[in-house]
Design a protein around this nucleic acid. Structure first.
Length: 303
DNA sequence: CTCCAGGAGATAT
DNA sequence: ATATCTCCTGGA
């Protein structure tokens, strides 16, 4: 490595604060930390080394890593009140554990296995505007593809946060972008959804911001008004971007999982939604996350 | 080359 | 209500 690069890296490194353990760090495992950041609920995190990720929390850059058997985080020195940001973003605190305890794990051996194998898996509290954006992009796309398209949009239209990370441009900015320009960023048919949803949101100031205050059913019905937002994407936006832990998104993984693990072959999607609400209860979204990750990682077939 | 993804919307029954 | 087709792109 040339001397200039070494100096440059030292300079970059000096911008970072020291590593901190998570306050409830013992609850993460290497697997659950990775799955929380990279499992498809967020598209803000990028791996930069083995078990080491960099990502956005609001307009700040944080890093997380698994080191010496525990989870750690750090952020740039200029970040204001980083502990509060982390606590909020990762939903740290006793309330989350209490919610997990209300899931029917005592009577559901499948859920119990998922929760034991993925101990520490969390649902993040992300901003609704950006989460909605990513999940409109998500239809019939894999996680890396969604992230790549998002990165391109952020880089082209967002603000630069650090060397290679940019902010979510916001719906107001997206409303100004011609649909054809969005198509150039490989959105395909989703470009129309983004463009039209941006106009819808822009034409009704305060509408999107009011959604997190609503009851779940009302919030979902509002989001369903957006072009490109059906039941699945509305539930993803509410669960990952609106702190609605009762939202139970049913994608093809969960659809197949419910059929296979809970013998719901032949049930319609709406019947499965009803089953989930009755069986998993008011924190069904938490159960969904454990079930989804377990299927994705192939955990249930091993046991 | 064909097929189909972590979906939604339009159309037809 | 339910079934089928199409919409872009990229990877198997």
């Amino acid at each position: 490595m040339p001397f200039g690069d070494i100096q440059n890296n030292l300079k970059k490194e000096s911008l970072w604060g020291s590593w901190c353990p998570f306050e409830y760090g013992h609850r993460f495992t290497a697997l659950s930390l990775e799955e929380t950041l990279m499992g498809g609920q967020s598209f803000d995190w990028h791996p930069i080394a083995n078990l080491h990720w960099r990502g956005r929390v609001e307009r700040n850059i944080f890093e997380c890593r698994w080191q010496n058997g525990e989870a750690e985080w750090r952020c740039q020195k200029k970040t204001v009140h980083p502990e509060e940001l982390i606590e909020k973003y990762f939903c740290l605190g006793a309330g989350y554990e209490a919610s997990l305890n209300e899931l029917p794990w005592r009577s559901d051996p499948i859920l119990d296995l998922c929760m034991k194998q993925l101990k520490g898996l969390r649902i993040l509290r992300q901003p609704l505007d950006q989460t909605l954006f990513f999940f409109i992009l998500s239809s019939a796309k894999s996680i890396p593809q969604i992230q790549a398209i998002g990165d391109a949009v952020f880089q082209r239209y967002g603000d630069q946060l650090i060397e290679d990370m940019y902010s979510f441009p916001g719906w107001a900015k997206l409303a100004e972008i011609p649909e054809e320009d969005l198509r150039l960023l490989k959105m395909g048919y989703r470009a129309k959804y983004i463009s039209q949803s941006a106009k819808f949101i822009n034409d009704q100031p305060g509408w999107l911001e009011s959604i997190p205050q609503m009851k779940y059913v009302d919030a979902k019905n509002e989001l369903l008004k957006l072009p490109g937002v059906g039941a699945k994407i509305a539930d993803c936006a509410l669960l990952f971007g609106g702190n609605f832990l009762e939202a139970f998104p049913i994608d093809t993984w969960i659809e197949k999982s419910l059929e296979k693990r809970y013998s719901l072959e032949g049930w319609s999607t709406s019947q499965k939604t009803h089953f989930a609400r009755v069986h998993f209860g008011k924190f069904a979204g938490l159960a969904q996350q454990f079930l989804f990750s377990a299927e994705r990682l192939g955990i249930l077939d091993k046991h």
